[in-house]
Computed example of a mutant assay.
Amino acid sequence: MTQETPSRPLQQVLLGIFVLLGFGAIFCMYYNPTTSWFKCPDAAVSEYNVCTEACLSFLEVKNQTQTINNCTVNDTLVEVKELTTKSPQLDKKDSADSSEVVILVWSWPFGQTFDLESCESGYGIKGCRLIIDRNRINEAHGVMFHVRDIGGDVPYLKTLSRPAWQNWVWMNMESPTNSPQLPGMDDMFNLTSNYRTDSDVWVPYGHLVEASEEDKAFQIPQKDKLVCWIVSHWEDKLWRVEYFNEFSQHINVEGYGRHFGRYIDNKDYFKVMSSCKFYLAFENSVHKDYITEKLFNPLMHGTVPVVIGPPRENYEKFIPADSFIHVNDFKTAKELAEHLKLLDQSQEMYEKYFAWRKHFVPKLSNFGQEHACLICNHLKRNKNFRVFKNVNAWYWG
């Protein structure tokens, strides 16, 4: 039996199909299409970057709006090459989300590490990637520099040629009195992240949040001490030390910490604080908005803070007026001591300092982690050009 040959029309059809397939392969290999209808969905790409049948069916759908470059058609498979590189240059893993913002933490603030994967779980901020590897600096949209830790790096930083789209963020939580200026870097930062309310990214030491039903059941802890102070940093020239020396002549103060020779560990720190009716929340220096954990720790643990710091009006921007006692409210340290003794004799008067706990609860900020995440969130929301001129003049005045 002789084999039948295909009819001429069928031969022409088959020839046409092969010609079209060949032309398609050449087109994908050399033309690098940029039209917006030629990308496989992510779910259709295997671990070897090969499009499966789902990809082929996707290609049959008209008016797709995504792009892929450097495809190779091979019968029923489409090999997916890496997407066109954009600035900043992310590796393949990082490029999964084009809206993702990358923040390089130049160094751990004070050497304290934190979770780099915490922005979404801790602060509800999506699309942020925190990295610590300086070799990846060219990937970062922003670089967070902790001012206290970069002194030795300044000469090297001045040699870098950073991309125009990259933001350098001046980050600091120490007061001007206890912070180093950075000669030669005064105009090298784009943004500031600080406890001051006029910084670009404001991160206070603490703040009050709405109380839950459980929080509203707050009870004042049992007290067996009148006034306490836990302190290690002691300098006779500090105003808080001068004030304490006068104040302690008129009232008994339970002193703890290295200076008083009564060291307490972290386990006992808050136990001691909550056992005192009043706690001396004396800042080591007085500056605008410089209100630290020295205030928020006693508020959290059921003790009335007696503060030295910026004026009362500054405190009242952040906490209720009847939640603390300011030394400036009294003409002398003796007058303050007499007032505390009076409150000690009146439980009703004392309890008024906790009326705010029915509505709010104190919360401390997470030092480096919160800065990095909020910096990322700021850059996601503000993509405009920004340079902070004369950061030294702004902070040190």
Rank of each mutant, 00 (worst) to 15 (best):
276 C>G: 02
290 Y>K: 00
218 F>K: 01
183 P>V: 07
265 D>H: 12
195 Y>L: 02
313 E>C: 02
259 H>Q: 15
294 K>H: 12
196 R>T: 15
192 T>K: 01
190 N>V: 09
218 F>A: 02
225 K>Y: 05
201 V>T: 03
305 P>C: 05
284 N>K: 10
309 G>T: 08
281 A>F: 06
252 N>W: 09
245 N>M: 12
289 D>S: 11
261 G>N: 14
272 V>N: 11
217 A>W: 02
186 D>Y: 01
214 E>G: 01
255 G>K: 04
313 E>W: 04
290 Y>M: 01
262 R>Q: 15
259 H>C: 03
226 L>E: 10
214 E>V: 00
267 K>C: 11
291 I>K: 04
216 K>I: 07
245 N>Q: 13
204 P>T: 05
260 F>C: 11
291 I>Y: 03
220 I>L: 10
183 P>N: 08
250 H>V: 07
227 V>D: 10
222 Q>Y: 08
199 S>G: 15
294 K>Q: 09
222 Q>H: 12
303 T>H: 07
249 Q>Y: 11
200 D>A: 12
306 V>A: 06
221 P>D: 01
187 D>E: 06
192 T>E: 08
226 L>C: 04
264 I>W: 10
192 T>V: 07
256 Y>A: 05
212 S>Q: 09
291 I>T: 04
309 G>K: 06
287 H>E: 12
280 L>K: 13
249 Q>N: 13
309 G>Q: 06
220 I>S: 06
273 M>H: 07
283 E>M: 13
185 M>T: 10
199 S>Y: 05
313 E>I: 11
237 K>E: 11
259 H>N: 14
200 D>K: 03
229 W>Q: 04
240 R>T: 05
201 V>K: 04
186 D>V: 11
211 A>Y: 02
282 F>P: 08
252 N>I: 06
209 V>W: 00
300 M>I: 10
278 F>V: 03
258 R>Y: 14
264 I>P: 13
257 G>H: 00
267 K>A: 12
298 P>L: 08
247 F>M: 08
238 L>Q: 12
263 Y>H: 08
270 F>M: 12
311 P>E: 12
212 S>E: 05
192 T>I: 11
293 E>C: 03
312 R>D: 11
211 A>C: 02
270 F>A: 07
223 K>P: 04
277 K>R: 15
233 H>Q: 13
198 D>H: 09
252 N>T: 13
283 E>A: 00
196 R>Y: 04
269 Y>S: 03
297 N>C: 06
186 D>T: 14
226 L>G: 00
252 N>R: 14
